[in-house]
C-alpha cells in the first residue's frame, strides 16, 4: 500500500492476468501453480462467505475462493463457469475463482502505488497498479486475497 515508485524495478516481472467484472487484474506468476477450467465443487457449509467450495485436484483438496466475493461483487452463477487459478500457499493449495483468464504479461515499467482514494476491499487487496496502453492492471496481494474474512 505504501509502496513508492522506487519499487518499480522490484515490481518488474511476469504477471498472470485475469478479468473480474471486465476489469483487468494480475498476480505474480510465481505464485500460480496452474490454471484449470471450471471444476465441480463441493460446497463448504459454515465456511466464510468467500469460500465457494472444495475441489479435488488430482487427489489434493483445494479450497476455492471466489475473488468476486472477496472484492465485494456478486458471485457468478455456477453455469457461468468461473476459471480456477490455483495458488500453492503455505496452508495448502487454494484456488482463486475468476471470470476469465488473460495473458501472462511481461512488465518492467508503468508501476504505481494504488491511489490513496481506493475504497472497500480493493484498499487492502491492490498492491500496486500498472499503466498499460489501453487499461490499468490491478496487481493483487495474493496473501491478502486468500486470507478470507470470517
Amino acid at each position: 500500500m505504501s509502496t513508492k515508485t522506487t519499487a518499480a524495478e522490484t515490481m518488474a516481472g511476469q504477471y498472470c492476468t485475469f478479468f473480474i467484472d471486465a476489469k483487468l487484474y494480475g498476480i505474480d506468476v510465481n505464485e500460480v501453480q496452474e490454471v484449470i477450467v471450471h471444476q465441480e465443487m463441493t460446497p463448504a457449509p459454515l465456511a466464510p462467505p468467500a469460500v465457494r467450495g472444495l475441489i479435488n485436484l488430482r487427489g489434493q483438496v483445494v479450497i476455492a475462493i471466489d475473488l468476486r466475493t472477496v472484492l465485494g461483487l456478486a458471485s457468478l452463477a455456477d453455469a457461468e463457469l468461473a476459471t480456477n487459478i490455483v495458488i500453492g500457499s503455505d496452508g495448502g493449495a487454494v484456488s482463486l475463482l475468476v471470470d476469465e483468464i488473460g495473458d501472462v504479461l511481461d512488465l518492467d515499467s508503468g508501476f504505481e502505488p494504488p491511489p490513496r482514494t481506493l475504497k472497500g476491499p480493493h484498499r487492502h487487496l491492490v498492491r500496486a497498479v500498472c499503466r498499460l496502453p489501453d487499461c490499468v492492471l490491478h496487481i493483487l496481494d495474493v496473501n491478502a486475497a486468500i486470507a478470507v474474512q470470517r
Binding site: T42, A44, L46, A47, V51, L54, N56, V61, V62, A93
Partner: peptide, 25 residues
C-alpha cells in the same frame, strides 16, 4: 486436513475424497 480458510469451524473435522472423485466434508 481442512485448509487454512476452513480451520476453526467446530462442526467440521476434515475432508476426504470419495470414490467418485468428489470432495466430502
Amino acid at each position: 486436513p481442512l485448509g487454512e480458510q476452513l480451520k476453526g469451524i467446530p462442526a467440521l473435522a476434515g475432508v476426504t475424497i470419495m470414490g467418485d472423485g468428489r470432495v466430502a466434508l
